[in-house]
Design a protein around this nucleic acid. Sequence first.
DNA 1: ATGTGATTTGTACTATCGTACAAAAGATCA
DNA 2: TGATCTTTTGTACGATAGTACAAATCACAT
Lengths: 235, 235
Amino acid sequence: MVSKPTSKETARKPNMREAILAAAEELFATNGFNAVSVRDIAQAAGANPGSVTYHFKTKDGLLLEIYRRHCGPMNLRRSELLAAARRVRDLQDRLEAIVRAYVVPAFTSGSDLAGGGARFTRLRAVMSAEGNEVARKIIAQTFDDTSHAFIDSIHDSLPHIPRNEIVWRSHFLLGALYYSLVTPDRVSRLSRGEADGSDAAMAIEQLVQATVAAFQAPALDQAAPARRRPVASKT
Amino acid sequence: MVSKPTSKETARKPNMREAILAAAEELFATNGFNAVSVRDIAQAAGANPGSVTYHFKTKDGLLLEIYRRHCGPMNLRRSELLAAARRVRDLQDRLEAIVRAYVVPAFTSGSDLAGGGARFTRLRAVMSAEGNEVARKIIAQTFDDTSHAFIDSIHDSLPHIPRNEIVWRSHFLLGALYYSLVTPDRVSRLSRGEADGSDAAMAIEQLVQATVAAFQAPALDQAAPARRRPVASKT
DNA sequence: ATGTGATTTGTACTATCGTACAAAAGATCA
DNA sequence: TGATCTTTTGTACGATAGTACAAATCACAT
């Protein structure tokens, strides 16, 4: 009962549990939850199928543990970066810093987990698309607070934009962020090989630049209504 | 139960084949490909599992037929709207019209198929996230031409922006579009019920407004480099 | 009414799924 | 070393997956 260095320091020895988590993360993020079997995961981790059951009880439990592993550190990092961003004086700079505080942790490692940031964000994107229930629950109760904090901070920088519209634009930001991680090859393809969709640093810069401009767009109410002219629809 | 007059084609009578397609579309778009069984689809369509095999041979064949059904009409509609948009004189109006020509067919019906536009786009988003091979192939060879046409048209309206950056921003647009259809409830939640994420007309307007501004943002090269100051990172 | 081709049904087969569980192997310390 | 946990292995079980196929049913021209 004693003498087990309470799982905090076990990280040094080659750990089967960690290998399973990493393999599951990668496979889920690439192929979705249902397309990956417990046996696939075990094989990728060099483990026995029964070992997965032993450590995580069920497949859902494994997914849950992946989320638990990442949510805390990523949220913490975001909060720190957001706090720093809010201290920026210049309004334009502050807005950019806030957006960057939201984007950067999603692309880079959220903790000491090697390169797990982008992979975990990609996983979240896929689970979100599949309407995974386990993920839905834990995400709503983990990230909604942070999202509200970001929205409010952006609203402080852009008080003339209604909060609802900032919500929409934040939503677009998250969608763009997700999609950039899910299908980076499409960027390479459409640019005819001239851009690399897998270049995280470039993705961040492009995303921040585009998003800051999107946030700064005039609100819908305030957009000159005379200019609005819908394109002809056939039906 | 007699006498549905066989007007020329099979299109008029209540068709089991159509019911299966519609049910599959909805289920795939909501839960992903692997989470939905052929039996689920048959039950939702009020059909027999064997009927699915009869009409579409395999589950992949069913998915393929869904794509075939929608890709043509949606592409056609987009081309028409794009052609009209390109004729707009005012540059600002033209850019907005182009973006609208890209967005509107994704949200609304792409043909006579009832309300299928948004549903099919949601399906594409989910298949893209899951890395579905069948979808990947047909999408790349069906939509890439159209995407290039849009990118080139936008580039014509914004010649001072490098084409690569327009590719990035178009990519963000598609990501935002997808995500709006995949999790509209998140908009409702984060706006504390004040906005309805399922309001397609509102989503279109918000998306167009934000995206036009994003496209008009200065290029990365041209963004005043003195202003760029990364937020402090801890690691 | 009947024959014919198209469709629907019912069922069965094999593969693989998630999970359970007992036995083997390692690890830890008196 | 032997006793006691912890971890890994091997295997098995019931459920469900995709698909095949023969029989039943339907639509309709003759």
